[in-house]
Design a protein around this nucleic acid. Structure first.
Lengths: 256, 256
DNA sequence: ATATGTGAATCAGTTCACAGCG
DNA sequence: CGCTGTGAACTGATTCACATAT
């Protein structure tokens, strides 16, 4: 194996690991903050601390983009901001549609994070005829019937789904058919999409369940889970947060 | 070196990989749907398809929980629902507070995903005195001043931060000091927490930037198919702000 | 002297492929 | 048989540690 095809051309922007891509926005945010404070340069150590990662990882990440630092000195903040922005495709304008203007959709439309950084809410779409024409975040809601036309007229390639779960796949199919190739899904459903379409999901319920898992573990670390405790011990367990062993173990057991 | 932190090879299958934990809610959702349709058993193949993963991964995941399947048959739906629920800590009640009742916080309070599965919105907290007493999703908003008391009175161990970025760390510190040990952060900030506190973040802006990265690459790839000449056809899509402009370097990226 | 950039080592997660059980 | 459960191989990500450049 490994005959041939393994070596990548060392040119930048080819083959950046997914995990690295996912951290670039984090670095960018930290750098932007530094830029606003007119900090001219930053070391991998400092920047890593600001982004909440370790410095070796950060350097490795940046090495995939190219050699943008200066040995013995650090990284030029402005220059890095520009390079990362470009790498992420933020130097261009991305029109986005939000489908499903309920509580969440409306909140997203109003969310500042959308407007910043090259993302522009091009249209809001909802299935409820009563919503049609009503402005949300200053943008009139349009009816689902016109979805395809809206996508095409605005050259939209990124769609946000904030519909109820039951409608999500259907909306997704229509978005994809109309030309959308990236979807951010807030509906609690697994979306099926053809190859070439990226889906990222944001799922509140899943995040909470993951937290609950760890929370449960903290609360009863030694008692096996064989017996489902009635567990109203949550309140009692709270106080245990104060004590944390240095290298752990021997967690306080809390009887109800 | 690194102080050989051997993961605990506990007597039983304690030590479920993080990646597996993150998928359990997905399986649970698929199983719940089957359960509602009164499907008695399901194979790893079918369930994997419903959850959007591959079947080997699913079987491996389940193997960390124990041997809950029957060879030649599959998994008992009801039984698995119970086992996964228990593993995730969903057989108990988790009171949750939401801090920051703006558009997003209100949407979260109204979100159905919260109410289901053992999570209960115990309180809504906001810094705006004008909000105090106003009901959101049927729950009166309380003022930040009372945060500590609210946490303690309700035995809250999971907090959701939906404040503006500037307030998030401060809120986080107070939550942790009051006994919260799991935080779901919607604010676009890296939170610093002591050991023993779990943070998960949900960041719209980051997700969009990741999508933009892939989107940009799709656009650029159509022409650079390794064989074709550098046709200008798809170059139109790629705005080609390729290298630094002759004059200003200042990128026109505005943060928020 | 100092901090980057990167091979090499390590660790985590995924997939394979088949033994083992119903 | 069919389908689970799992060692083994593999792939990807992280961390280490130091040569390298300023």
């Amino acid at each position: 194996m490994a005959t041939g095809r393994t070596h990548r051309p060392a040119t930048r922007s080819r083959g950046i690991p997914e995990a690295t891509v996912a951290r670039l926005p984090l670095y960018l945010r930290a750098l932007t903050a530094l830029s606003e404070r007119s900090v001219p340069t930053v070391s991998s150590e400092e920047l890593a601390a600001a982004a909440g990662v370790n410095s070796a990882k950060l350097r490795k990440d940046f090495s995939y983009l190219g050699s943008y630092g200066t040995r013995g000195v650090g990284y030029d903040v402005e220059y890095l901001v520009y390079q990362i922005s470009r790498e992420l495709g933020l130097t261009q304008d991305w029109p986005v549609v939000i489908v499903g203007i309920g509580n969440l959709g409306a909140a997203l439309a109003n969310y500042g994070g959308f407007a910043s950084r090259g993302f522009r809410v091009a249209a809001l779409i909802d299935a409820d005829p009563a919503m049609a024409g009503k402005p949300v975040a200053g943008i009139p809601v349009q009816h689902t019937d016109d979805l395809e036309k809206i996508i095409q007229d605005n050259g939209v390639s990124i769609g946000v789904i904030a519909t109820p779960a039951g409608a999500a796949q259907q909306v997704c199919d229509r978005l994809v058919a109309a030309g959308v190739t990236s979807i951010l899904n807030f509906a609690p459903t697994v979306l099926n999409v053809p190859d070439g379409v990226d889906v990222r999901k944001v799922d509140l319920s899943i995040e909470l369940q993951i937290l609950a898992f760890h929370e449960q573990r903290k609360a009863g670390e030694e008692s096996a889970a064989d017996t489902a405790l009635p567990a109203a011990a949550a309140a009692a367990a709270r106080k245990a947060s104060a004590d944390q062993g240095p290298d752990g173990d021997v967690p306080a057991v809390m009887p109800a």
